[in-house]
Design a protein around this nucleic acid. Structure first.
Length: 311
DNA sequence: CCAGTAGCCTGCTTGC
DNA sequence: TGCAAGCAGGCTACTG
């Protein structure tokens, strides 16, 4: 599943391979992949053609590429969300189509060949097995806290993520105190803190020795800080492991290919010993709960269920 | 405004 | 062998 680190890997790949190129053609193979675009697939195809891609940006799991008409600055963006199974791939035109190809975007060369291959046409492909993700075009609007910074209107309600230079841990702590919900619900709430999915939520809670049903209003400043530090650390570690996978003409984002799997301490580890407890000379097995219609893995010894749990 | 949930999707796995 | 249910889960739209 693509979470923030995987999406950042894609953003970097697009910056390398796609930024600066004009769009010379668009083909929507699966209309449902443009359902968030106003006017649907035909409008998406006609509105994207002819615009130039600028440098891609990201907030949480949303990725967008500002779009400019010739001779002007970007006032809108191509927005991508990968959902559960989405990939953005950069190919050469004529490469065989993958099974779940949903959208094909033809990119011209940049003109004078300064970098390697910059004069060659490319094909940007959106591939998505489950169609939870999609592409759409949206207006760029100023953010509420920094009016000089533009984001797509549909992304304005998404909170800053832990890798954002303006991420404010103390503001998140204040919101934890005002909430009446459980810790994992809060971590998965993209309006409170963005970029965290089920895998990294479980991993960060384990690292911070906190249980997922802990009421957020009972956290103290030190626990909140510990948790947010853990979230940041887990993402930086995943990014370091995934960040080397796009050095060829192929931008891969498939989280299921699993470069982070070896580092998981609780997610998918049910029945295995807790590594931290083992290192401290204790025995404890990771357990898996069903919660919010998804799985939650934790160590019952070093992440004990709180007396007053809030599921 | 806040908390919580149904539904969207496909393909692999499990159970009868 | 075939069919159905279960599972994976981010996000929007909706209800209370």
């Amino acid at each position: 599943m693509p979470e923030l680190p995987e999406v950042e890997v894609v953003r970097r790949g697009l910056e390398t391979w796609a930024a600066g190129r004009p769009v010379s053609g668009v083909e929507v193979v699966e209309p449902r992949s443009t359902r968030r675009h106003d006017g649907g697939a035909p409008a998406f195809e006609s509105q994207l053609s002819g615009l130039r891609l600028a440098v891609p940006e990201r907030r949480g799991k949303y990725l967008w590429v500002p779009l400019a008409a010739a001779g002007s600055t970007p006032d809108r963006a191509l927005v991508a969300h990968l959902g559960m199974s989405g990939q953005l791939l950069v190919n050469s035109p004529g490469d065989p189509d993958p099974r779940h190809l949903r959208i094909r975007i033809l990119l011209e060369g940049e003109g004078e060949g300064e970098g390697e291959d910059s004069g060659t046409a490319l094909e940007l492909r959106f591939v998505d097995q489950r169609i939870f993700g999609g592409l759409f075009i949206d207006a760029l609007v100023p953010t509420s806290d920094r009016p000089d910074q533009l984001v797509p209107a549909s992304v304005a309600h998404i909170a800053r993520d832990p890798l954002d230079p303006h991420f404010d841990p103390d503001a998140v702590y204040q919101r934890f105190r005002r909430r009446r919900t459980g810790l994992k619900r809060a971590l998965l709430d993209q309006g409170l803190i963005s970029g965290i999915g089920n895998i990294y939520a479980d991993e960060a809670l384990w690292q911070a020795r906190l249980h997922y049903a802990r009421p957020t209003e009972t956290l103290n400043r030190s626990e909140s800080g510990r948790l947010l530090t853990a979230v940041h650390a887990v993402m930086v570690q995943a990014l370091a492991q995934g960040g080397t996978s796009f050095d060829s003409l192929y931008v891969n984002v498939n989280g299921e290919s699993g470069y982070f799997d070896r580092s998981l301490n609780v997610y998918g580890q049910a029945g295995r010993p807790c590594a931290r407890c083992a290192a401290e000379g204790h025995q404890s097995l990771i357990v898996k709960d069903r919660f919010m219609n998804r799985s939650s893995a934790y160590c019952p010894r070093c992440q004990p269920v709180p007396r007053r749990a809030r599921w």
